[in-house]
Amino acid sequence: MNEISIWMRSFVAVANAGSFSAAANQIGVTQSTISKQIVGLERHLGTQLFRRTTRSLALTADGMLFLEGALRALAAIDEAESLVGLVTNIQGTVRMTCPLSLAESRIIKMIGRFLERHPKMEIDLQLSDHALNLVSDNLDLAIRVGQLGDSRLTARKIGMARRVIVASPDYLDKMGRPTKPADLRRHNCISYTLLSTGSRWQFVGGEAAVVSGNFRADSPHGLRAATLAGIGIAANAHWLFEQELASGALEIVLPNFELLPMPIHAVLPSGRFVNARTRALLDHLVDEFVRDPLLSTRTSVPT
């Protein structure tokens, strides 16, 4: 990698991170090193790229123009490297975030297989059911389930989360088994408060049920625990209840009615070039999703 390319990568890192220290930590060099690289780049270009004060750092007009060109140039370099096989030797760290239940059920195993193929890679995984900010949290990639609320994000749909309605046999023996969506109105339904559709459960084909109950949770794990405790009926991703359904601790309610699945997106920071290591991980996850019947866009939910 030539000196100009190194300077450009440092420049993009500083522009995205908003500070020399944060960019240095991201790249793995000292703050002094990255400062010298930016100065070298500014001298080479004959212009000031950042407006610096003791309290802030901002791109100049020339800096904003150069950022656009640098992103295109670095993306082209990474693309050229991948075409000649250098992607097989990728190394470095990808910082990503993913919902906890999906990570436990699927993503961590997928990452494990990725690391077997790329032993020089490191994955820094932050688990959260809340949407983290990719820029302020310095993340390269996010996997998000459900509708995206920010249209400015750079997103790629990589799968669908198939959902089921479940309850414990004890609850159903006591309260009865619904035979149609309208029957859910007479049951205690557990709400997942982070779901954008709230108390409206939408089925494939257009039918819907507005549900209510005396328990709600902002965590899929809390939702599952409440269902196992016999509090009521819950709806969430099929993968969340796999083990409990297999053991008989939970059973599927309304097996002849399928809930609308939720889209799964890979989200990237807007305006940031996608480096080879992030792209390699994303491509790996896409391949894994295609083969998983609970994640793929090609198959229906198992019963």
Rank of each mutant, 00 (worst) to 15 (best):
L45T: 00
A58V: 14
L141G: 04
A131Q: 08
E116W: 03
R43D: 13
A131Y: 13
Q37I: 00
A24Y: 01
S151K: 00
I34V: 05
T97Y: 05
R43A: 11
A70Y: 02
I27F: 00
E122W: 04
V87H: 15
G46S: 11
R117M: 15
M96V: 04
K109A: 12
A58Y: 10
A80H: 02
T60R: 04
G92K: 05
F66E: 00
L139M: 09
I123G: 06
Q91K: 14
L125E: 02
M121G: 07
Q91T: 11
N138A: 13
R52M: 09
L139A: 10
S32Y: 05
L57V: 07
R52C: 08
S32A: 07
V29E: 05
D137S: 14
G40K: 06
P119L: 10
V145S: 02
L139I: 08
G63C: 05
Q147P: 10
R51G: 04
T88C: 12
E81Y: 11
R117G: 14
P99V: 02
F50K: 05
G92S: 09
E81T: 07
L74R: 01
S35N: 08
K120F: 07
T97M: 07
S105N: 03
G63D: 01
Q31I: 03
T97R: 03
C98H: 06
G85I: 03
M64N: 07
L127M: 08
L148R: 00
T60W: 01
V135P: 06
A80I: 04
K36F: 08
E68G: 15
R117N: 15
F66G: 01
L139Q: 07
R117E: 15
L65N: 14
E42N: 03
I27S: 00
L45V: 00
G69I: 06
A75M: 12
I143H: 03
I90R: 03
R95M: 13
L115F: 11
I143L: 05
A80T: 05
G92P: 03
D150T: 05
L141R: 04
D129C: 08
T30G: 12
Q31M: 04
K109E: 10
L132K: 03
S56H: 04
T60P: 04
S151C: 04
L134Q: 01
G85P: 03
V87L: 12
Q48T: 05
R152E: 14
N89D: 14
M121V: 14
A80S: 07
L148P: 00
A131F: 12
L132Y: 00
M121H: 11
M110I: 12
D137M: 06
L139V: 08
L127E: 01
I38F: 01
R55P: 02
H118K: 05
I27E: 02
V135S: 13
I108S: 12
G85W: 03
I143G: 01
A131K: 08
L153V: 09
G69C: 05
G92F: 01
Q126Y: 13
M121C: 09
I108V: 14
V84K: 15
R52I: 12
D78I: 15
S136M: 11
R43V: 11
R144F: 11
V145Q: 01
R113P: 08
L59A: 00
K36E: 14
M121A: 14
G46E: 14
R55L: 07
L100K: 10
L45H: 01
V29T: 15
K157P: 11
S56Y: 01
